[in-house]
Design a binder for these strands. Structure first.
Lengths: 214, 214
DNA sequence: CTTCTCGGATAACGGCACTATCCAATCAGC
DNA sequence: GCTGATTGGATAGTGCCGTTATCCGAGAAG
């Protein structure tokens, strides 16, 4: 198919597709001649993935490029590809290590990991963006005057761990390696909006149950 | 304290504070004379809240204004204030109701709510942004070729419901109404980054447990 | 008195996701 | 084979948004 058809079937304007091509989010089509390029179902699929990441996952274009680079890198073993995709995702600004709240948050999060026995996560704390995000968020709570210590975090972490087990179970249900990788990426990028929405729905439900509508 | 000190103690530049004042995120200081205004601890606290929402919660400035408007509106009953804060948060673009994937997602999500017995949430589906976000995300999965039906969503929803119970329990632990409201706002805005980070950490932990580091 | 700082108003900036405009090559319909 | 529409590439422009820089005249400080 040609650009116009790719645009029609994906619902993305040709101008935007050209932009994605330029930015390297979409591989170039097979060049038929100087003015025509041919795209296939793979392009359509990739384009839909890109759109989902940008619109639903709110992933910036540059990050999408990074993530896709890892997805396409067949030379990497699976866990590395998974990790690379996770880590290429948008992050909270770097924590200011001199800030007293950040330091307190570090202690609290480290205590939490000890309590939970997350030995693998502990090994990653120097490099994991998830760890840094957690520290930044916990520090923000403290700065406003609310403590969000290990004892409050632990039950959440327990639930999130069970969520992660579900994620990986679902991923393993797919037969091909390629699908598993793509689903894992989606599981990080699109799953979070799903869980966030479920969470808010659950909050609405429980609030209504406790206090009614008025 | 004056602008310069407010800036120093909060770590926010005077130019940005002026911008927040202009945008109505921060109430004006007490005017001492034509060129001096006096700010107090409440201003500092509010400023930190605003910063946390913008930087950690990634809430757009306009939304912060809306949320704070509800926080400050003493005439509203608590559940409404809570709901108003929840609903003022950034949303996914409106789902296109003509889209076949969106329609399928609607059916799937409705089925899920029935299965779970979330009767209160069902009543809110016409207006709840959380419901719409969920539909958009589920539709995005389907569009790429992965089904994320009620039977896969249900265990996640169960875990999220337990998370919401924790949220409300934590909120109720605060003695004053004002603190509870503020904590509830934070619980929606800052808690989500916390949970998201815990989730990713948990994914990293479980991935490492299943597959090791190589 | 004069130099410094204050806060208000306004304009400018930089990043990002697109989008509009040109253009020459080429395809489709007659 | 001619002609008008379409194609894809290059480039510049747009709109939004969070932030910052520049002026300015009115006090405060030494």
């Amino acid at each position: 198919m040609r650009l116009a058809e790719l645009s029609e079937r994906s619902g993305v304007s040709t101008a935007t597709i050209k932009y994605y091509l330029r930015e390297g989010l979409l591989p170039a089509g097979r060049q038929i001649n100087a003015t025509t390029a041919e795209y296939d179902e793979e392009h359509l699929r990739r384009l839909r993935l890109v759109r989902a990441m940008i619109q639903v996952g709110r992933v910036p274009v540059a990050k999408v490029r990074d993530v896709l680079g890892h997805v396409d890198d067949d030379s990497l073993p699976r866990t590395i590809r998974l990790g690379a995709a996770l880590w290429a995702l948008p992050q909270v600004p770097e924590p200011d290590e001199d800030d007293e709240y950040v330091q307190a948050a570090h202690l609290e999060v480290d205590k939490l990991l000890d309590q939970l026995g997350w030995e693998n996560a502990k090994q990653l704390i120097t490099i994991s963006p998830a760890y840094r995000s957690l520290v930044v968020a916990v520090a923000a709570f403290r700065r406003i005057g609310y403590t969000f210590g290990a004892e409050l975090l632990a039950p959440y972490a327990e639930l999130m761990y069970r969520t992660a087990v579900l994620d990986l179970d679902n991923m393993e249900a797919y037969p091909s390696e390629a699908e598993r990788i793509e689903f894992a990426i989606l599981g990080v990028i699109l799953n979070e909006p799903v869980k966030q929405a479920l969470h808010r729905l659950a909050q609405e439900e429980e609030t209504a149950r406790r206090y009614g509508f008025e």
